[in-house]
Design a binder for these strands. Structure first.
Lengths: 198, 198
DNA sequence: TTTATTATAGAACAAATGTACTAATATTTT
DNA sequence: AAAATATTAGTACATTTGTTCTATAATAAA
């Protein structure tokens, strides 16, 4: 593993546990026993570390979405997989979803990219719903304008569940995962066609 | 208006527009043309300002909930009012909902209080739903375990909508309010009894 | 009106932080 | 092996930030 990768791994670990605002480049260097000078040789600016972590996050989302797009024949299980994959990613990079938009939005490279990626994800999930309605898995007696609303609800809960968990139950591991899935699945349950209610 | 109040007003204004992490006690003092020394005469620690703003936020929530509790005969309109009041409060203090739990959770006085207040709000909203089911406004053919889930979904979307808006459409004013209400109302629409679908 | 108090300004300090610089060491290329 | 390049440690510096200190000024109490 290269020093760069080690820095990123250490950074995300420290950020996730202590929060971005409390972790400085010196902390990261100290944690992995290298000098501050060395760290800034690999990442000139501390912001560049956060930027690199964001790129990792986006990369993981993209590879997952690419897989999903290949599946022409979307099934209900894909939706569950989607939620579970989202949970894993938001867990690994939970600092981005917990530290709010405050810090992240102040990094220009991220700010410029964020809107684009969220829009893309929304469109993709919208397609999945469309196909599931067509297949009769979701109800087809509803006005079409409800689907974008459902997609948005899914994203808000998916993205900010960790933040909410932090200020309420503080669940971890399997319990956290179960609660997350319960909330996400509960969101589209009312829209399932009657025959699929299981 | 006392200097203390002026400091809090200036602080929330600056925090809301620039984010907590970018605003220091010096910025606040400069914005209102007083000396740093004077500011720290009124608030010994910068954190105390955030703590005081949090107390304001909680206070506004409490006065609203107290009104609602007096209404013995809960109607559907109360639910909409509830959402609208929540929107106003989360807008006025949106920094707390945008800067994430990261900063806020590091202030002990807030951390200790936050869980309590969220739980209280959840219970109160749970009661409202219970009464609305009883009155036949919400469906009574559903398993009772779905109501806590719905309450939690409502709170996540209610609390973090501003954060989500920041990274997507960045709506403001009336448009923001309309979108917020659309998402919140869309959440409980599927649970309305058939006769109430209007 | 004198005295006490509260409020304010402005300078000063210490700690933290990002980052640049220098020299040494390791690694790769030729 | 020699030269070039990449990596590392350690130090140093400037800036920012929270906070304290001291001296005035304003206000309230006596």
């Amino acid at each position: 593993m290269t020093t760069q990768e080690k820095i990123l791994d250490t950074a995300i670990k420290l950020y996730n546990t202590h929060g971005i605002s409390k972790i400085t480049s010196r902390h990261i260097a100290a944690e992995m026993d290298i000098s501050p000078g060395n760290l800034h040789y690999h990442f000139k600016h501390t912001e560049d570390i956060i930027k690199a972590l964001y790129d990792r996050l986006v990369g993981e989302y993209n590879t997952f979405f690419r897989e999903l797009e290949l599946t022409e024949d979307v099934s209900f299980a894909d939706l569950t997989n989607f939620a579970q994959a989202s949970f894993k990613i938001t867990t690994r990079y939970r600092i981005f979803f917990r530290s709010g938009v405050d810090i992240v939005m102040q990094i220009p490279a991220i700010r410029d990219n964020l809107h684009e990626i969220v829009t893309k994800r929304k469109t993709q999930l919208g397609f999945i719903f469309e196909r599931l309605v067509h297949k009769g898995i979701f109800r087809n007696d509803l006005p079409p304008h409800i689907w974008p609303i459902l997609v948005e609800q899914l994203f808000i809960i998916g993205d900010f569940w960790w933040a909410h968990n932090e200020i309420t139950e503080r669940l971890k591991g399997a319990k956290a995962s179960a609660k997350y899935m319960e909330l996400i699945e509960g969101l589209f349950t009312p829209y399932l066609a009657v025959k699929n209610k299981n």
